[in-house]
Structures are given as C-alpha cells and as structure tokens.
C-alpha cells in the first residue's frame, strides 16, 4: 500500500467523523485494517477528528447534538477496533468518571467520557449518584490516572469535596489527577475543594487529562 492510499483512507475516517457521517465509518475502519494500517494510526485519526469536533463546538459551529453524533461515529469505529485493542498499545491512560452522590444528571459526564475514549483513554464510567466510597473502591480496583467527577446542582457539587476527602483518607489522593465539571463548577471552586482542574467544558477537560498522562509518561 502506498503512502498516499494510507493517508487517503485515514483522511476519509477523519472526514466521516467531522461531517457526522455514520453510514460509511465502519466500512472505512475495516478497510483501513485490511490495508494493514496500524490501530495506533487509526486511533490517532479518530483523535484528530474529535479535536476538530471539539474546536467546532467551542466556536459554536457544532452543538451538543452534533457532539453526540460524532460520539456515535467514534463508537462505531471502536466496535471494529476494540477487539484488537486489548493486545495493542493504543490505550493512553485510564479514567474513572461518575456523577457525584445526590445527582442524577449525566449528559456532561457522558460527553466527557466520549472525548476521553476518542483520545485513547480506557474509561470506567461509574454512572450517576456515585458515593465517595464507590469512587474510592474504583480507584483501588482500577488504579486510574484520572478521576473525573460531575455535578449539575448547587446542592450536590459539595459532594465532590467529600470524594476528595475520602480519597485522601484512603491514601489514594496523590495517585490520581482529579478533574471536576458541571454547570455549577467554577475554576475557583475546583481549586477550593482540592481538585487539580475544573470549571472547563467536556472537550477542554479531556485535553487536560491527555496532557496529564503525556506528562506522566515523560
């Protein structure tokens, strides 16, 4: 296979995701694998596409429904790639995410998870209304690089602090980076409760997480 063919098919994967074209995406990924393009290169193309999607979202060209559709395209890609990923080295890090206790909102958390996956993270999603104990258990069990917490309500954001306290008490705080998000979360609040980052949108949050794992590897 020539360099041009490879670039063309990787470009087609990128274009399909950016234009939210779900129809061809599985076929394009299968074609790429059949042409012996490495999983890493395909994942890189997906990540690049999601970077463009994220930028369009920040610039108000794309909106939540578009992000969800892009996520659907990425999901289709990973249906093809996932069985092959286990033995490969395409996973860049691991994240445990969840909506904190008392809160049942999950759109922001799901979006954050989608961006993380598209960047090559293995994501363990604990769901909604997650107690501090469950966060601690998950950190002990999965040894993640990142813990992401979400909350929408002013009455539940305070529970993020309880999770951080519980992680400290379990001696796990320093083993992970913590990022917090949700409508009521500001950068100042994140700092105040002892998180490493917060008050950013789902895409920006995922970019920060990627930076963290890259720094860790250096």
């Amino acid at each position: 296979m020539g360099h041009c063919d490879k670039n063309r098919i990787l470009g087609s994967i990128l274009d399909a995701i950016v234009s939210l074209n779900l129809d061809n995406i599985s076929m394009l990924c299968r074609n790429a694998l059949e042409l012996s393009i490495s999983i890493q290169e395909i994942v890189d193309s997906i990540a690049k596409a999601m970077e463009i999607i994220g930028r369009k979202y920040e610039e108000n060209e794309y909106f939540l429904s578009d992000l969800i559709m892009a996520g659907e395209c990425v999901k289709e890609c990973f249906k093809i790639l996932e069985p092959l990923l286990k033995g490969g080295g395409a996973v860049i890090g691991r994240a445990v995410i969840g909506t904190v206790e008392g809160d049942l909102h999950d759109i922001g958390k799901n979006l954050f998870g989608m961006f993380l996956r598209s960047m090559g993270f293995e994501v363990i999603d604990l769901g909604v209304d997650v107690s501090p104990e469950k966060f601690v258990e998950a950190v002990q069990r999965y040894n993640p690089d990142v813990v992401g917490m979400s909350a929408l309500l002013t009455t539940t954001v305070v529970n993020m602090k309880k999770v951080i306290r519980a992680l400290k008490e379990a001696g796990l705080r320093d083993s992970v980076k913590i990022i917090v998000g949700g409508a009521a979360v500001t950068k100042e609040f994140a700092k105040e409760i002892g998180a490493d980052e917060g008050g950013v949108d789902a895409y920006e949050g995922a970019v920060i997480c990627r930076k963290w794992v890259e720094e860790k590897k250096r």
């Binding site: 979202y57 108000n60 909106f63 939540l64």
Partner: peptide
C-alpha cells in the same frame, strides 16, 4: 439548552 448552548443544533 444548557450552560454552553442548545442541546439541538440551531440548524436542526
């Protein structure tokens, strides 16, 4: 709509 804008794109 939520903090960032509409749930559905304005085009749709």
């Amino acid at each position: 709509a939520y903090s960032k804008g509409p749930l559905l794109s304005p085009k749709l």
